[in-house]
Design a protein around this nucleic acid. Structure first.
Length: 261
DNA sequence: ATGGTAGAAGGTCTA
């Protein structure tokens, strides 16, 4: 069972490129982030016509997540439990959803960026990561395969960054967010790409500016965390760099895991 | 120190 995460940076701008990739990628499930669309404006038919089941959790202009699946989804849940820390608790930012697919609980996550730090946006990121910790812990109690997939906006270690010195003051490398990510690992989750590529520099994001892509000035911020029941089934994890090199690409590229049947 | 690019909007804000 192949499961991907892909921050597409706008569903409307990315639609043709995304459909091309979906045709050939061989994925069973694709978690999308930054759809930047309300649910009603999401181009559902294009995906359904191509044979995908689709669930979205969007909002106006920013953020927004979705899950595509070749087989039906059950028990779909939108929003990260607990609204404490949301700037507007009555209208929480659309950054999290879950669904069960073929017995695997899968989350699509768009974690707050947190820049500039320090500041209220960084505090929001830390609070969000604390709430995700609580949810990740709850999911472990189900004793089922869980895959927490998404754009975490955290560079786990300096080897995940082309130039750690240039990122030293950025919210993506700060000790606080890194500690929360390590806390998820401490609960029993496995960073799938790190597991398969223990010492490699494997990036998932390259800025649109300053020629970051041709110079391979990338960072690794898109992750799939696996519960023990999922990690036991892990046979492969890869970053597909091809989509990043296309015209009108996202600034992220897809990351995927393969779980044995 | 600034600006460089991109997307959703049709304001600037976010990254």
């Amino acid at each position: 069972m192949k499961i991907a995460t892909f921050n597409i940076n706008g569903i409307k701008a990315r639609l043709p490129r995304l459909l091309e990739w979906l045709e050939t990628c061989g994925m069973d499930v694709v978690c999308l982030q930054e759809i930047k669309s309300v649910d009603d404006a999401f181009p559902r038919a294009a995906f359904e016509d191509a044979g995908w089941h689709l669930e979205t959790h969007g909002m106006k202009a920013f953020n927004g997540v979705a899950i595509l699946s070749r087989t039906p989804m059950t028990d779909v849940h939108r929003g990260l439990p607990g609204t404490a820390g949301e700037p507007d608790p009555d209208n929480p930012q659309a950054r999290y959803m879950e669904a069960t697919i073929e017995g695997v609980r899968i989350a699509s996550i768009y974690l707050p960026n947190g820049n500039p730090q320090p500041g209220p946006k960084f505090d929001y990121k830390l609070g969000w990561m604390e709430r995700l910790y609580a949810r990740a812990d709850e999911l472990l109690a189900r004793e089922m395969p869980v895959v927490l997939a998404g754009d975490y906006n955290v560079i786990p270690e300096d080897i995940d960054c082309y130039s750690p010195g240039q990122w030293a003051d950025d919210a993506l490398t700060q000790p606080g967010p890194r500690s929360w990510l390590n806390a998820y690992i401490g609960l029993g989750y496995t960073d799938a790409v790190r597991q398969i590529h223990p010492s490699g520099a494997h990036y998932t994001y390259w800025d649109y500016q300053r020629g970051a892509w041709p110079k391979d000035h990338g960072i690794r911020i898109d992750h799939l965390l696996l519960s023990p029941e999922a990690a036991d089934r892990l046979t492969d994890a890869q970053i597909d760099r091809m989509p990043r090199g296309k015209e009108k690409s996202s600034d992220h590229t897809p990351v995927w895991v393969d779980l044995a049947a």
